[in-house]
């Protein structure tokens, strides 16, 4: 009896469920096509500016020297900066904003060390691989 029922409704049920999943998929796709909001555009621009700021910071000669003295190739770190998320980049850029204009080497070293810490954390999380001595947790 039960087998009969399953045989009877099995095919239409499968078809119905397959159709259901198809509509779910279509739903998500149509949600993607639409106006791109001003908020998104503004956030993208702010992120770009922050990224440029951080990259420019690492391009500075005195910063390069500090990095080299710490045994890290500046080019390598700049490459890793590219792999940081927008939120992390904004965090570093905010930190850089705190630097007074024409900051002494001491403050620059402080900022570089801060970025070290950020990169260290992302290394531990396995997002980046700047420091060879860090074993990622996953």
């Amino acid at each position: 009896m039960r087998k009969k029922i399953i045989r009877y409704i099995g095919k239409p049920l499968c078809l119905f469920l397959a159709l259901c999943f198809l509509t779910v998929d279509v739903g998500i796709r149509t949600a993607q096509a639409g106006m791109i909001s001003t908020e998104t555009v503004l956030a993208a621009q702010a992120n770009n500016e922050a990224r440029t700021q951080v990259v420019d910071f690492f391009a500075r000669e005195d910063v390069r020297q500090v990095m080299t003295a710490q045994g890290v190739a500046a080019d390598e770190v700049a490459a890793r900066v590219a792999s940081l998320s927008d939120a992390e980049i904004v965090q570093i850029a905010n930190e850089l904003d705190q630097l007074p204009a024409g900051a002494s080497l001491g403050t620059v070293v402080g900022a570089v060390l801060f970025i070290f810490v950020v990169l260290l954390i992302t290394d531990i999380l396995g997002y980046t691989k700047v420091f060879t001595f860090v074993q990622p947790i996953r």
Binding site: M35, S37, T38, V41, L42, Q45
Partner: peptide
Amino acid sequence: SFVAWMGAGNSSY
């Protein structure tokens, strides 16, 4: 300002 023109477009729409 790119964002200003984008915003003007979106809001007027």
